[in-house]
């Protein structure tokens, strides 16, 4: 059904334009509800990070213990200088990011007037529930509709170094897929979707749960799995950064592959393809 051409016309020029139903309704609904949930999680998560921008490893982490990475200030000068410190490296970011409030509390950004930290946390958990339901439905949909097998999993030969190498080159040259190739996900796209869906997002949830006192009471092995409560927190922010990176590339790729066409494909499902006329 997906590859069925619902409309075809001969262009007066040299190409045949055809359109087809690219994404079924379930994919589109789940894509956008997940997008809203994940955006909310990233947004509220940023404000949670902001209140204590220090990352640790192990179980314990506070102002008396050394941080793996931190936003910190040198107050020995008249105007405090702000640094990002990672191990022995430090990068001065005075004026770029970092805001000096109550010493030694340094925050990445100022909280808006009337900001409620507790409400922000509550919203993070609300979005987390929406995300979990959405993720479960999405995985169920991918499997039951056969899209996981047909569209996501690499086909025979796709994982060959030659094919992957060619695809990397296509990406670097920002080359747009045409004709039949535009109908299928390319190998890097497939791998990105698979890694985000089945590795990064589940790890986000698990590291998040490892920060919960009651969940670790029921499942103390989570501490061992991630190396402690603070390690889980650090990993949670690293994975969140990977999700953000994925979204940025995902959106940038729209411009390469055709912004309106792909956006419409994910809203109404209709996707246009130009097929080169055989002479």
């Amino acid at each position: 059904m997906e590859n069925q051409t619902i409309h075809q016309e001969t262009d007066p020029g040299s190409a045949v334009s055809s359109s087809y139903q690219r994404h079924p309704l379930a994919t589109r609904l789940l894509h956008w509800t997940s997008a809203i949930a994940i955006f909310t999680l990233l947004w509220t998560g940023f404000w949670i990070f902001n209140i204590h921008p220090r990352l640790y490893w192990g179980d314990v982490g506070n102002f008396d213990t050394p941080a793996l990475a931190e936003l910190t200030a040198d107050t020995s000068t008249s105007i405090p200088e702000i640094f990002i410190k990672v191990g022995d490296y430090s990068l001065e970011v005075t004026g770029l990011i970092g805001q000096v409030r109550r010493m030694p509390f340094i925050r990445v950004a100022a909280y808006p007037e009337g900001f409620k930290f507790g409400g922000n946390r509550a919203l993070h958990f609300t979005a987390a529930w929406a995300f979990v339901f959405g993720w479960l439905l999405f995985v169920y949909h991918l499997i039951s509709s056969g899209r996981l097998r047909d569209n996501w999993l690499p086909k025979t030969g796709e994982m060959s170094p030659r094919n992957i190498g060619r695809d990397i080159l296509n990406h670097l040259k920002l080359r747009r897929a045409h004709g039949d190739a535009a109908k299928h996900y390319n190998i890097l796209q497939k791998l990105a979707y698979l890694i985000v869906m089945f590795a990064v997002l589940p790890l986000m949830l698990l590291t998040g749960l490892t920060m919960s006192n009651s969940v670790t009471t029921a499942w103390p092995f989570l501490f061992d799995l991630f190396g402690g409560r603070q390690s889980a927190r650090t990993l949670h922010f690293i994975f969140a950064f990977l999700v953000l990176l994925f979204i940025l590339i995902h959106v940038l790729q729209l411009f390469v592959a055709g912004f309106i066409n792909h956006l419409r494909g994910m809203i109404t499902g209709v996707f246009h393809i130009k097929v080169e006329k055989k002479s």
Binding site: I48, F49, I51, H52, R54, D59, V60, G61, N62, F63, F117, G118, R121, M211, N213, R229, Q230, R233
Partner: peptide, 10 residues
Amino acid sequence: LHTCDEGWSA
């Protein structure tokens, strides 16, 4: 292990 909603623990 005590954990604060701000993120620190002790």
